[in-house]
Design a protein around this nucleic acid. Structure first.
Lengths: 316, 316
DNA sequence: GTGAAAGCGCTAACAC
DNA sequence: GTGTTAGCGCTTTCAC
């Protein structure tokens, strides 16, 4: 391993000078700086993170704590993780993944968390280093999330503009912040549209959505605002099975827009999670907190991804 | 932060004795050991990974290098990552994720890699620390993979036992080891069954599979062995669209068995990636290599996941 | 069975 | 502008 000392010897200066070239180059004379930089590239020197960590009492490591059950992990985590890893790397940080709350005492400068439940909160907040959650948790923990309310709100209005008259909400049977916000977005839009809301609450599976469709009489010119892509896909398949024309007779929209919306032959119109922006905000917020520049929880505006399960907009 | 020295002071011994209690407890007298252990739990001491790393020249960190394009990342990576993280943690290692080959010089004891291409190999092998690949790459890099050949081989035989006469292979238009092995598994089974193989090679998308179905005349009593779940889902949907009865008239099987197979209302019969076992083998192999106990590349036996797109087995 | 000293790679604080 | 010193937390080596 090439160390600072090697570079120092090669360029006939002290280790401190080399260290300064790396961190405070303006404090070093041009001449020396160039010599040192040459030595660095000649030897292929890379600073040891461990050495830095020890002397600075910082790890330059961030942890992503995934608290969901391993069977339930949504397919989009991989993408979110990669985006976060990329942003962190730009800032000189490493991303560790972890799946266990007891592990949280692990040695990192900060933690991202997702899928935490009420009972996890005490353990989470016990730690002194900064935490940012993906998704709203409670008042004490900063979070970044898609603007769930805006997602269903905008989608409901959009469906009305497409000319669908009867707008049904297929929501989640969950007492979680995101589920409630999505339902409220739909409700608010329906109020503004002067329409009677119709809300069903079911599990997040294709099958329960299909079962629900079977039990209902879905009239032409209806549209289904689903709280997730999985629900939307289940509804879509059952509607097609019943011979209903999508999107001509009935429209279907989902929520999330990662993978699942692209599985069906008719790609799903959906509210897209802007994962890249979410990742960026999460990194900014957490690194800010680490550097004592506290920021605020952020809701990222959703993006409607218009595909093949909704009609074209009506011309005025 | 609680350090070794704190524990040493608390229990009136030297830091070395505390260190020994942790790593070579048999070298310490019962009396002292118990006193030290009490002090450790009283103070809540956790060894600093950084301190250990620096003095042992080991990081206790493993990197997972995901070289796939971020848009292409398969949904099951999140699961694989979590399983690996869990196994590593049991062994006292941390998992970092990384998405950039230049980052590979990062400071870890070993690397898992997936999605590497030919052009990545030189950079990969340049590194001196051990590498284990998820999926076969070339002769020089150890890998763990599902036994792709066995997967399609067993599935093809299974379909024959279900009474399907005409077995078609919907393969991948890719010159990658896994794609070739899956095709060969089908071929071998067809040879043993004394049937003429029929192979199509397409992109890994639902749409191309659906298009292919449209162009073919699929007779009753056929079954489609697909190289991936996405291809299978595309074929399945188009067959249903054409009014063909699944699984009575035609059978469809996929490959991978993570998420996508459960999206359709009729869950897909598929060759399941045993991700948990794969993770375990990858961890064993890599940690073995790190500790100079070189192991061998491993093919994990696939598991057929029989669901609703294939008939019941014929009774003899 | 236990302790003292030295060193892993790096940098902040203080000399010069 | 540059070098010296000391110390971050831990373990290896060598004494005792």
């Amino acid at each position: 391993m090439i160390t600072l000392a090697d570079v120092a010897k090669e360029s006939h200066v002290s280790t401190m000078t080399v260290s300064r070239v790396l961190h405070h180059p303006e404090q070093v004379s041009d001449e020396v700086r160039q010599a040192v930089q040459q030595a660095i590239s000649k030897l292929g020197y890379k600073p040891s993170r461990v050495g830095q960590a020890l002397s600075q009492q910082r790890q330059f490591a961030i942890q992503f704590l995934i608290l969901e059950d391993i069977q339930q992990v949504d397919p989009y985590y991989a993408k979110l993780l990669l985006y976060i890893a990329d942003y962190l790397r730009e800032q000189g940080y490493t991303l560790e993944i972890s799946h266990d709350l007891t592990d949280h005492s692990s040695q990192v400068d900060g933690t991202f968390v997702s899928g935490a439940r009420q009972q996890d909160l005490p353990l989470l907040t016990k730690s002194s280093d900064p935490i940012v959650s993906y998704g709203q948790l409670d008042q004490t923990i900063k979070y970044v999330d898609i603007d769930n309310f805006q997602g269903t709100y905008q989608m409901t209005h959009y469906l009305a503009k497409c000319g669908y008259q009867n707008l049904l909400y297929f929501g989640l049977d969950l007492n979680e912040a995101f589920a409630i916000s999505r339902e409220e977005g739909y409700l608010q839009a329906m109020t503004e549209l002067n329409k009677m809301p119709t809300i069903f609450r079911i599990d997040n599976t294709e099958q329960t959505a299909a079962n629900l469709i079977e039990q209902l009489i879905i009239t032409d010119n209806s549209a289904i605002v689903a709280a997730t892509d999985r629900i939307a896909i289940g509804a879509l398949q059952q509607l097609l099975h019943l011979g209903i024309k999508i999107p001509a007779d009935v429209g279907v929209t989902g929520f999330d827009g990662v993978f699942i919306n692209q599985i069906s032959l008719q790609h799903l119109t959906t509210v897209q999670q802007p994962l890249k922006k979410i990742a960026q905000s999460m990194v900014e917020l957490l690194l800010g907190m680490i550097e004592k520049r506290p920021g605020k929880s952020t809701l990222i505006p959703p993006q409607l991804s218009i595909a093949q399960t909704t009609r074209a907009l009506e011309e005025k």
